[in-house]
Write a protein that binds this DNA or RNA. Structure first.
Lengths: 147, 147
DNA sequence: CCGTATCCAAGCCGATACTG
DNA sequence: CAGTATCGGCTTGGATACGG
């Protein structure tokens, strides 16, 4: 990519430069993995399993990840398994037992997400203020609800 | 706001603990802001404006953020403005001119996202391998698209 | 206990057309 | 030039019911 100006301030250019070295498919996968981070349930599920510290059953996970539906949990876990973020072990018993464990890759991901999450959490006030100021000076021109 | 303590390493448990101190609304907002990160256009748009290094016109942004539609760019910029990540300045001219600038908060966000993004990009091989292995041992039981 | 299948509402995003 | 309005396809995720 072109570096028209010299602003050494952001490490963002480094990212752009590095991404240039990736193939289309790799770049797409990168975006895909990043989007997992803001997936409604993935991070929460991973952190629950990670904190449990040992193989964790499906139903136990479902207790901890509050308000998740069975369908969504299944789908989330499948995705995490496919991406190598958790492992899944099925025991041929009756009733069936399935245990999930965080992988090293999964732990690493949590470690790398943590600082960002913390920054966002600590900046919550700024965002709140911005939103309130915006909503005050830009009164809803939409949502002309009835009348 | 830049009172980030220099902890050598953030554990996920610390995040959970810190989030406990947030109100429901603050916690929801945190998730909201994190989800912005994987929004299809937000990060790309922010990085384009940031790298430009000076106030940037709507149409100029649209050239750089390839394949974005006018509607999506407008919506993205509105959201970024509302959250205090970019500023928007309208000039009463004909034809109209509108300039966008990255804010300090926006720059900080990019700075905090960068390392995560880089880690993901560098781990792309692992994810690829996991996916291929998974897809091999779990042959598509879905997508019975016309043979 | 764990997973799948189906239905359905809500939201995203592109395409297109129109305005000041 | 910048933004709005509308439509329609696609995806997401909850509720529910059922199967192994």
């Amino acid at each position: 990519m072109k570096k028209t100006d010299n602003k050494p301030r952001f490490g963002w250019e480094d990212i752009a430069a590095f991404c240039e070295t990736l193939s289309e498919a790799e770049d797409a996968l990168t975006r895909d993995m990043v989007s997992r981070i803001s997936d409604k349930w993935s991070l929460w599920t991973m952190s629950v399993i990670a904190q449990f510290g040992q193989p964790m059953r499906f139903s136990r996970i479902m207790e901890q990840v509050e308000a998740i539906s069975q369908k969504s949990l299944t789908k989330t876990l499948r995705g995490l398994e496919r991406d190598g973020l958790v492992t899944r072990k099925v025991f041929a018993e009756v009733p069936p037992r399935v245990e999930y464990t965080i992988t090293n890759l999964g732990s690493e991901m949590l470690d790398h997400v943590a600082p960002l999450w913390l920054w966002v959490a600590k900046s919550v006030r700024s965002f709140q203020d911005s939103r309130m100021a915006f909503d005050r000076r830009v009164p809803l021109r939409k949502k002309r609800s009835a009348l």
